[in-house]
Design a protein around this nucleic acid. Structure first.
Length: 477
DNA sequence: AAAAAAT
């Protein structure tokens, strides 16, 4: 089967050819003819199966005839995360380069004015996350009654994230006479019920078991103590032939901590989670895709659908509590039949989640051993030793930078001791402010001197002037 | 228990 047999236009075929693809994937082969016919499609497929192109390619042809009116997009694609939305936009841009299409990407964290300008000119394709789209709708910047093709992508994730009410509201604004494509990685009863609400006599297409992990991915578990996690990960990173890797944490806070630790130890790493600024998120992801950054420490925002070609490793720094997330996370590696490696670091308290995971992947995962585990144990012991006895010595300082102040041995080996002090000081941004505060104070010194000079605890020496304004008694405790 | 998404 070739792309040319699917009924796509020469413009689209040319763009596909230039990207080097020759044969459609199973989902593309099954879905594209029906999408071109104008049928509704209920698709069960994970990302990495070529799902995105299975709707972008035919949509480009469907939209080729006709013209968009101002603020009335002709098609709408809903995605659960900003990264996925951006990825779909890239896809359109790439395959639509010979078919003049206008497109707008409506996601949070980016300026309204650019998005408004595009909407005003009229767009053929609108790609959006639900929140930002509704924002535009409420401000009257976009009318959805001209949408003839709707794509609900990653519907199961939308459900997990509580987006369904938003999606329902959006769909209620659409004309009932339209084509709808509904994709989900899993097809539970709940999903079917939801699909029934949105679809009319859909053609069902499914590829590969949703719970299957690629056979080319080598998996393993590494059992350690809690305090040994970071040293163990470093050892793993050194021992494995890591070209590039996703490193998943369960919490955003831990992403920050681990990223700091890895960077301190000289690893080329970046971080990605939902509390980072959108520009930073995009920049980091681009750098990771281009290979400028080798390790991406991330939350589950990156677990699904993010498509980075040839990722050699996935490390679970924490065991995912939802077993499906395990499948999604390790699905970042071993894509398109390539080899991949997925290692999960497990502590005693996390073993309870392993059962569900092993049931889902249908086998027991092998426990791997680490060369030089003695060293890891030693480092781990040093870390936990200090965490147990914060009473000795100056409490605050020591507690703060956990492993930064880890065993003297490892610190000497890999890090300059000075760096640690810096890390527990306020960020540069604050230091700048503090300087300003200082100058301010000196220029109006009589003011500051009028106040009783109560020491401010925990801010070091550079205290912004306004912090020294005396507080009411109630706040002072 | 946490992450994602609108500010």
């Amino acid at each position: 089967m070739k792309f040319a047999d699917l009924g796509l236009s020469p413009e689209v075929l040319k763009a596909v050819e230039e990207t080097g693809y020759e044969s459609p994937t199973p989902i593309q082969e099954k879905a594209i003819p029906y999408v071109l016919m104008g049928r509704d499609v209920l698709g069960t497929a994970q990302t990495g199966t070529g799902k995105t192109a299975s709707f972008t390619l035919p949509m480009i042809d469907i939209l080729a005839s006709g013209q968009a009116k101002a603020r009335m997009p002709r098609s709408l694609i809903l995605e659960p995360t900003r990264e996925l939305a951006a990825q779909v936009a890239d896809n359109f841009e790439n395959y639509g380069k010979y078919s003049k299409l206008s497109m707008a990407l409506l996601i949070g964290g980016m300026s309204f004015s650019d998005q408004d300008a595009k909407l005003d000119k009229g767009v053929d394709v609108l790609i959006a996350t639900p929140g930002r789209l509704l924002d535009h709708v409420e401000r009257g910047k976009v009318l959805l009654n001209g949408v003839k093709t709707l794509v609900i992508d990653e519907a199961d994730r939308m459900m997990d994230m509580g987006f369904i009410p938003d999606v329902e509201r959006i769909v209620s604004l659409l004309p009932p006479l339209r084509q709808t494509l509904f994709f989900s990685a899993t097809m539970s009863k709940e999903m079917r019920k939801l699909a029934d609400m949105f679809l009319l006599n859909p053609k069902e297409v499914a590829v590969s078991l949703p719970t299957s992990t690629a056979a080319t991915v080598t998996q393993g578990l590494l059992m350690v103590q809690k305090s040994e996690k970071r040293p163990a990960l470093r050892k793993l990173l050194q021992q494995e032939k890591v070209k590039n890797a996703f490193i998943f944490c369960n919490r955003k806070k831990d992403v920050d901590i681990l990223l700091g630790s890895l960077t301190k130890h000289g690893f080329n790493a970046g971080g990605l989670h939902g509390d980072m600024s959108q520009s930073h998120r995009m920049e980091t992801l681009d750098k990771f895709k281009s290979g400028e950054i080798k390790l991406l420490v991330c939350s589950d925002v990156a677990a699904r659908g993010i498509d980075v070609s040839s990722v050699s490793h996935v490390f679970n720094f924490d065991v995912p509590t939802h077993s499906e997330d395990y499948i999604h996370r390790i699905g970042r590696t071993g894509r398109a039949g390539q080899e991949g490696h997925a290692y999960t670091i497990v502590t005693k308290s996390e073993t309870k989640y392993l059962d569900g995971i092993q049931k889902l992947v249908g086998r027991e995962l092998p426990i791997i051993t680490l060369e030089g585990m003695e060293e890891v144990v030693k480092e781990g012991a040093a870390i936990s030793e200090r965490e147990k006895k914060p009473g000795r010595g100056p409490r605050r300082g020591q507690r703060r930078s956990d492993e930064g102040a880890s065993s003297a041995k490892s610190a000497q080996k890999e890090t300059a001791p000075d760096e640690k002090k810096q890390s527990s000081r306020p960020s540069k941004k604050y230091e700048k402010n503090a300087e300003k505060g200082n100058n301010d104070r000196s220029s109006r010194s009589h003011h500051a001197n009028d106040e009783p000079d109560t020491p401010v605890i925990g801010l070091g020496e550079n205290i912004p002037a306004f912090f020294k304004i005396p507080l009411r008694k109630s706040a002072g405790k």
